[in-house]
């Protein structure tokens, strides 16, 4: 049933995107110039922006989420667990447009100063000086990554916490009996047992980060370019669809739907990879 729906969505969108695919051919996927008023549509900058912001989000969110989950499952006193985990779950209930507005009104103006400081500090270092080059406006790939990290943290946290809860008490106590400290116990008993589940959680978070639309559209800066400057503005696939769809027509609209098809394919790819990793992890465990 679900497969049928997914299949129908894929067919319907591809058909409406076909004029753009036919007009641009492979250039749609391989070129970097996106100029609706010249009817040139290269989607690569948006793929790049989507991947970069999602990666930033995961780099920020995964350690925090795993940390919170461990705290809740193995460290926190029992009476603290429920309130803290419902607080984290509450983060997931905030509508994404609220995150986006907070990002553009509160975070972006404030974080400009932080970015400028970081780019001052890193300016003598060869690679970092490019990554963190200024000046920044506060709206850009990294800010979008931060907002996305906030949005995926509750997802990754609640799933990893449940996975950690399934670790058999016996395995934990065996580790303690061998004289492990708490951290050694976590490394020896909790992590190996939960690897597949953790990867699954991260992949769910990744899917959320790649598909997030309105929050990204508000803070990402909206310029169709591939840049190594993480503090600079970029654009993501979902964001450009949200921004340009209303005023589009003809080939432009087809190209935007084409972006949707591409994003769809990309998320399916990520999910398949995740399944493969999980399946392999299961075999080893």
């Amino acid at each position: 049933m679900v497969l049928l729906i997914l299949g129908l969505i894929a067919v319907a969108t591809t058909r409406r995107a076909w004029p753009a695919f036919a007009d641009e051919g492979m250039r749609f996927f391989t070129t970097t110039r996106w100029a609706p008023n010249a009817e040139v549509f290269g989607s690569l900058p948006f793929v790049y922006g989507t991947v970069v912001t999602a990666v930033i989000a995961l780099v920020l969110a995964v350690p925090v989420s795993v940390g919170i989950a461990l705290f809740l499952s193995d460290v926190a006193p029992r009476r603290l667990r429920r309130p803290v985990s419902s607080l984290v779950d509450l983060l997931a209930a905030i509508p994404s447009v609220v995150y986006g507005l907070w990002g553009v009104i509160v975070l972006a103006p404030w974080i400009t100063g932080v970015y400028d400081r970081i780019s001052d500090i890193t300016s003598p270092v060869p690679v970092l000086s490019t990554l963190f080059a200024g000046p920044s406006t506060g709206r850009g790939l990294f800010t979008a990554g931060i907002i996305l990290a906030l949005m995926v943290t509750p997802i990754i946290t609640s799933i990893t916490r449940e996975v950690f809860d399934t670790v058999p008490a016996m395995a934990k106590e065996a580790a303690y009996a061998l004289g492990s400290t708490r951290w050694e116990m976590i490394r020896a008993a909790v992590f190996p047992h939960s690897r597949a589940g953790m990867i699954g959680a991260v992949m769910l978070g990744l899917g959320r980060a790649m598909g997030e639309t309105i929050a990204a559209a508000l803070v990402i800066g909206s310029s169709a370019r591939i840049t190594a400057q993480l503090f600079g503005s970029g654009d993501s696939m979902a964001a450009v669809i949200a921004n340009e769809f209303g005023e589009s027509g003809g080939l432009h609209r087809a190209a935007l739907i084409g972006l949707g098809v591409e994003l769809f394919a990309l998320t399916i790819l990520v999910n398949v990879i995740a399944r493969v990793i999980i399946a392999r992890g299961r075999r080893h465990a």
Binding site: R33, A35, P36, G221, S222, T227, G232, S233, S248
Partner: peptide, 11 residues
């Protein structure tokens, strides 16, 4: 409705 603004502009 959408034009290619220079990269050092704000949106």
């Amino acid at each position: 409705a959408t034009v290619e603004w220079p990269a050092d502009t704000q949106a």
